[in-house]
Design a protein around this nucleic acid. Structure first.
Lengths: 197, 197
DNA sequence: CCTACCGATCGGTAGG
DNA sequence: CCTACCGATCGGTAGG
């Protein structure tokens, strides 16, 4: 009875996977529904049967990213503090092993700076959530004296997110000249009074 | 006698100015020669008379950016060291006052991460030059004991560039929640043994 | 610099 | 899900 629905769900997942691959190579604006459809093995009109517009497909791609991140978070119920920072380093290591994901993220984030972009609100939320998460960790570390007393948790949180983003772009452009994880680790360590690892 | 040539040069400048405005709003791939031409007050075929292809126009835009940066550098012959760092803060202040330039830079940099993009080589060079410039300053500071002894100049240079780039993207997306210049200043100060200002 | 045009491609719709 | 199609737009060319 649910066979039809199951098949539809699987087809949807195939399309989203194809879309991620295409966005990665051409960005959102630079990609076409026809190219995504071809990789998913259907026509572009067939794709529109599942996702009624180009924007709806983008929304589905971003939803999957969030779902995957949530999965990883759940496996890794790190409390705010040192463990959370180590977890963030782990996420960076995961990213370095999956350049395609980083590529997609960097390109979409840049396109979406303009308020009219269909993913703009997504990134506004994304930045806010990321900042709050990191801030909570720095505040916890401040409470236990593990954060250097001259470090402002608010500034440190903002800076950490920005540093991660900037390193990603520079690493994608010149991979051989950027040690993404090492640089992050060095930065974090410089804020702490205890060894990070 | 040079009247014709002068007029052509001026027209070229008009077109480049229009291109910057359009790239800023739509990115390079998202913009059209027709839109650029319309803002410059000519037809798109007229534009092609001056710039033989879309890529040639992009090259001219990047050349102008380099020329303007070089002008600012020349006015401000800062030697490597503290003065140079203050100069970089000044550049960040200039950028915050000119969001359009930052927008263009962030969008192009993200599009150009892929090796096939017409501006890819430009950004490879841009990152390398930027890193070397900042590295020279940190090394000079290390020699005079103004850099904290536990700071590696190489890592600090890479990190500074990445931080600036990441802050720009986050600031463009959520301007009210990011203090770009203040964050840069705080970061730099944390590396030094002497007051930055 | 323009008019006029080309082939290609785009997102989306109709109708089944 | 497909075939067939739409109007719009693209970069670039011809020819003046």
């Amino acid at each position: 009875m649910t066979g039809g629905y199951l098949k539809g769900r699987l087809r949807r997942e195939d399309i989203i996977t194809a879309a991620i691959a295409v966005y990665r190579e051409a960005g959102y604006h630079g990609s076409s529904l026809r190219e995504v459809a071809k990789r998913a093995g259907i026509t572009h009109a067939g794709l529109i049967y599942y996702f009624p517009s180009k924007e709806a497909l983008l929304a589905a791609v971003l939803e999957r990213r969030d779902a995957e991140d949530a999965d990883r978070e759940q496996l890794n119920v790190a409390a705010p503090g040192l463990d959370m920072l180590r977890h963030l380093i782990g996420l960076a290591e995961y990213n370095v092993a999956h350049p395609g994901i980083v590529d997609l993220y960097v390109r979409l984030a840049a396109e979406a700076v303009s308020p009219g972009h269909p993913a703009h609100e997504y990134f506004v939320r994304h930045y806010r959530v990321a900042r709050e998460e990191v801030l909570a960790s720095f505040q916890a570390l401040a409470d236990t004296g593990e954060l250097r007393p001259d470090v402002d948790p608010q500034v440190a949180a903002l800076t950490f997110i920005a540093l991660e983003d900037g390193l990603q772009a520079q690493w994608l452009t010149t991979p051989d000249e950027v040690d993404l994880v090492g640089s992050l680790r060095t930065y974090l360590q410089s804020l702490l009074t205890v060894p990070l690892s």
